[in-house]
């Protein structure tokens, strides 16, 4: 099942913008509304657009299931390992051991309303990226799996 050329071209044009906006929502999760779940869903919307405009046979060349599975598993593992890492630093599980230390993603924030910087938050941006990867891979994989179940007429 293939959509018309207009739909395919529009999907192609929107796809990178969706990915970039989703990435923005994920990486700015600790400063602006949004976060891992929302940003991952936005990125998955971009790939969903690409998937519904093409046939399954055509899409598997661009979106590989093994890549998406890897993406998803890596996101969840990043979350878990970040949590376990704080155990190694003598903090409770998922304790924020990176924040306000001055190191990587640990700039000290000034109290009160301020525009903020990407380099703050400690563990929170890392967890956001992990969850974003997981949601992106997971939702895309669900759509791809469901598309694989549709019976297509052979061209």
């Amino acid at each position: 099942m293939k959509m018309t050329k207009i739909v395919r071209t529009t999907a192609d044009a929107f796809y990178p913008f969706c990915l970039v906006f989703g990435l923005y929502v994920v990486t700015h999760g600790h400063l602006t509304p949004g976060g891992g779940f929302q940003g991952g869903a936005v990125m998955a919307t971009g790939t969903a657009l690409l998937i519904v405009s093409r046939s399954y046979r055509e899409i598997t060349g661009r979106l590989r299931q093994t890549m998406l599975k890897l993406c998803e598993a890596f996101g969840l593992m990043l979350f878990l390992l970040a949590g376990l890492q704080s155990l190694a630093n003598a903090r409770p599980f998922l304790g924020n051991w990176l924040t306000q230390t001055g190191g990587f993603v640990g700039s000290v924030v000034s109290y009160g309303p301020n525009p903020g910087s990407l380099d703050t938050g400690g563990l929170v941006p890392l967890l956001n990226v992990g969850v974003g990867l997981e949601v992106f891979g997971g939702l895309t994989l669900i759509i791809l799996c469901m598309l694989s179940g549709i019976k297509e007429d052979r061209p």
Binding site: G35, F79, F93, L94, L127, V131
Partner: peptide
């Protein structure tokens, strides 16, 4: 937490374990 977004600071820091559960549900 050093996070400007209070909602994210609750979801990913104060209630981080709950978010791990949510991610596992999606998985």
């Amino acid at each position: 937490t050093g996070v400007n977004n209070i909602v994210t600071s609750i979801v990913f820091d104060f209630r981080g374990f709950d978010t791990l559960g949510e991610a596992t549900v999606l998985f």
